[in-house]
């Protein structure tokens, strides 16, 4: 029995800056991975964000292209006839909406540049609390990876060789994401309308 792969947590910015796809064996059924700059080896990812755009770009059959944003950027999502549940979900959900996406990273090349996208296994509507939990979860796991960048594990070594990641850049990404969660700003802007 094949062991199910873990769904990694990465922010959109880091995902979009990833371009190293590989397989561990030559076998056509061997799992495909995307290694990110902080060393997350992703065969599957779990995203929560805001579905901001969707478009059926298919010619004969439905083929949905959608954009799911998080505090750091956006994920491109493509779903067609081989992702029937996700395609069905995209056809019925009207943006903007908080969604959770479980899917496989995908890479393709455009003009010599590698673009990453997500092939969804499922898309479900969720609430703002779930989005907050995901940001915190992803910040925490990204921070753990950043802390492990000076260890010599195989994934980290590969990631460092390929990307020479700028730690400050990803540290700022995590901070920016976390700052969207702090309640300070909101409290100030509450105005009591009854007094006007």
């Amino acid at each position: 029995m094949l062991k199910r792969e873990v769904a990694k947590r990465v922010f959109a910015l880091e995902f979009r800056e990833s371009n190293m796809a590989f397989k561990e064996h030559d076998d056509q059924y061997a799992p495909q991975y995307l290694l990110t700059p902080t060393g997350a080896k992703c065969n599957r990812i779990f995203i929560v964000g805001t579905l901001t755009e969707k478009e059926d770009v298919g010619t004969n059959t439905e083929y949905w292209r959608a954009r799911v944003t998080d505090p750091t950027g956006s994920f491109l999502i493509y779903a067609g006839q081989y992702q029937p549940e996700a395609a069905q979900a995209l056809s019925s959900i009207e943006p903007p909406q908080f969604v959770a996406v479980v899917g496989k990273p995908n890479t393709y090349e455009i003009g010599g540049e590698i673009v990453t996208s997500v092939r969804p296994e499922s898309i479900q509507i969720v609430d703002a609390d779930t989005y907050d939990l995901w940001i915190l979860d992803t910040a925490r796991q990204t921070l753990q990876r950043l802390k492990r960048l000076d260890e010599g594990s195989e994934d980290v070594t590969k990631a460092k060789e390929h990307y020479s990641p700028n730690i400050g850049h990803y540290k700022q990404m995590v901070l920016d994401a976390l700052k969207t969660l702090s309640k300070g700003a909101e409290e100030v802007s509450v105005i009591d309308l009854s007094e006007i």
Binding site: L133, L136, R140, L146, V174, L175, S182
Partner: peptide, 20 residues
């Protein structure tokens, strides 16, 4: 269901990140 995130958790993680 997981409890909502707390301001305290967020602040703690911000401090931890800044210390990196």
């Amino acid at each position: 269901s997981a409890p909502k995130i707390s301001d305290q958790e967020v602040k703690k993680l911000i401090t931890e990140t800044e210390a990196l």
